[in-house]
């Protein structure tokens, strides 16, 4: 009477209703008394300054892009894996060609340095100090005299 997909649909609808019911009950029961101090943005107790959208390093975008491409590749691998037994050698070689093309892309990304994560170089503070003054070796183990 109900196809398999129909059962999945019922499952999805009940899941959505479950979530909606929880949110509805919460909306009914919770107090709602907004005032300007409460809805102000949170900045650890300080007055919020500046924009909430800040600049961040581009390496996050690069890694996300590379992940997306290889994730789609994996998505293509799943149905192929299900029917692999029926495809035989032809299926294996075809997927090998597909993976080989993407492997070339992977090698390019690796050599280009887009997979390197530790990029920041710390800048140490410059202290103006005379470079010719050294510690005299025999003083290192001496007693600590008090100037008097």
């Amino acid at each position: 009477m109900l196809t398999e997909f129909g059962k999945v649909l019922i499952f999805l609808i009940i899941g959505a209703l479950f979530v909606a019911a929880g949110l509805l009950v919460a909306w009914l029961l919770r107090p709602r008394r907004p005032y300007p101090g409460k809805v102000a943005p949170y900045e650890c107790g300080e007055e919020p300054v500046g924009d909430a959208w800040i600049r961040f390093n581009v390496r996050f975008y690069v890694v996300a892009l590379i992940f997306l491409i290889f994730d789609v590749e994996v998505v293509f691998l799943f149905p192929w894996a299900l029917v692999y037994r029926d495809l035989g050698l032809f299926g294996f070689l075809e997927m090998a060609v597909f993976l080989g093309i993407l492997l070339v892309g992977f090698a390019y990304v690796w050599v280009k340095g887009d997979l390197d994560w530790d990029k920041p170089r710390p800048i140490l503070p410059q202290i103006n100090r005379r470079q010719d003054l050294q510690v005299e070796p025999e003083k290192k183990n001496a007693e600590v005299p008090v100037a008097n």
Binding site: L133, V135, E136, K139, A142, V144, P145, V146, A147
Partner: peptide, 8 residues
């Protein structure tokens, strides 16, 4: 002075 170990 870390080098001479005297204070003032």
């Amino acid at each position: 002075s870390m080098v001479h170990r005297h204070k003032i």
